Simulated assay, not measured.
Amino acid sequence: MDDTQLQAWVEEISLRSFGVPFRHQASFNPRLRTTGGRYFLKSHNIEINPAQLQTYGTDEVEKIIKHELCHYHLHLAGRGYKHRDPEFKALLQKVEGSRYCQTLPGKAQRRTLPYRYKLICVQCGTEYMRKRKVDPARYRCGRCSGVLKLHTIKG
C-alpha cells in the first residue's frame, strides 16, 4: 500500500465512521518506532507507521486511523482532542478505535529503573528515592533536619 491508497482509505473511514470528510494529508512514515500513528495539530496531517500494517494487517491499522481521526475531528471542532479528555474517550469508543497500538515484535520495551537518584541524610542515614534529579541544598531530612547528599543509582 502506498500513500495515495492510504489517503483514499483514511478519507473513506472518515466518511463512514465520522460522517465528516478528511480534507488533509495522510501518509506513511517508516521512521515511527514506538507509535502506530500521529496527528499534527498545526498542519492537521496524519502519519501512520507502515510496520503496523505489515505486522498486524488492515484491521489493526484501521483502529489506529480511527484513533488519529478522533484527534483530527475533535481538534477541528474545538472540542477535547487530548487522550485524557472525556470527549476523546467517548468518541474513540463509539467508532471502535484503539486506545493503544500493538507493540511491534523485536522491539524491546524501554524499561528504566523506577528510581534513578537517592538522597541520603548525612546524620541519620534516611534514604529518599527520586525519579528526577533534585538539588540537595534545597532540602533537609524530614526526620532529623540533617543535610542531604545526592547519589546516582547505576542501572
Rank of each mutant, 00 (worst) to 15 (best):
T34H: 14
T34R: 14
T34F: 14
T34Y: 13
T34I: 07
T34Q: 14
T35R: 15
T35A: 15
T35M: 14
T35I: 15
G36E: 08
G36W: 05
G36L: 04
G36Y: 03
G37T: 05
Y39P: 01
Y39C: 07
Y39D: 04
Y39H: 08
Y39W: 04
Y39S: 02
F40I: 04
F40L: 07
F40A: 08
L41K: 12
L41W: 10
L41T: 12
L41I: 11
L41Q: 10
L41G: 07
K42Q: 11
K42S: 11
K42G: 06
K42R: 13
S43G: 06
H44Y: 03
N45I: 00
N45M: 01
I46K: 03
I46S: 01
E47D: 07
E47F: 02
E47S: 04
E47K: 03
E47L: 02
E47C: 04
I48F: 03
I48L: 03
N49R: 02
N49V: 02
P50N: 07
P50Q: 08
A51H: 11
A51W: 06
A51N: 10
A51R: 13
A51S: 12
A51Q: 12
Q52E: 00
Q52W: 01
Q52V: 05
Q52I: 00
Q54F: 09
Q54N: 09
T55S: 11
T55C: 08
T55R: 14
T55A: 02
T55D: 12
Y56E: 09
Y56G: 04
Y56M: 09
Y56D: 08
G57I: 01
G57R: 01
G57A: 00
G57W: 01
T58R: 15
T58P: 11
T58K: 15
T58W: 15
D59R: 10
E60M: 14
E60T: 14
E60I: 08
E60H: 15
E60N: 14
E60A: 15
V61M: 02
E62T: 15
K63N: 10
K63Q: 08
K63Y: 04
K63G: 12
I64K: 11
I64F: 13
I65A: 00
I65C: 14
I65L: 06
K66C: 00
K66P: 00
K66N: 03
K66F: 12
H67W: 05
H67E: 06
H67P: 08
E68T: 13
E68K: 05
E68I: 11
L69I: 09
L69M: 06
C70S: 02
C70K: 00
C70I: 02
C70G: 04
C70H: 00
C70A: 04
C70E: 03
H71D: 09
H71S: 13
H71N: 11
Y72C: 09
Y72K: 06
Y72M: 07
Y72D: 02
H73S: 12
L74T: 05
L74K: 10
H75I: 10
H75A: 12
H75W: 08
H75M: 10
H75S: 10
H75T: 04
L76W: 07
L76N: 12
A77Y: 06
G78V: 11
G78K: 06
G78W: 06
G78A: 12
G78P: 06
G78N: 12
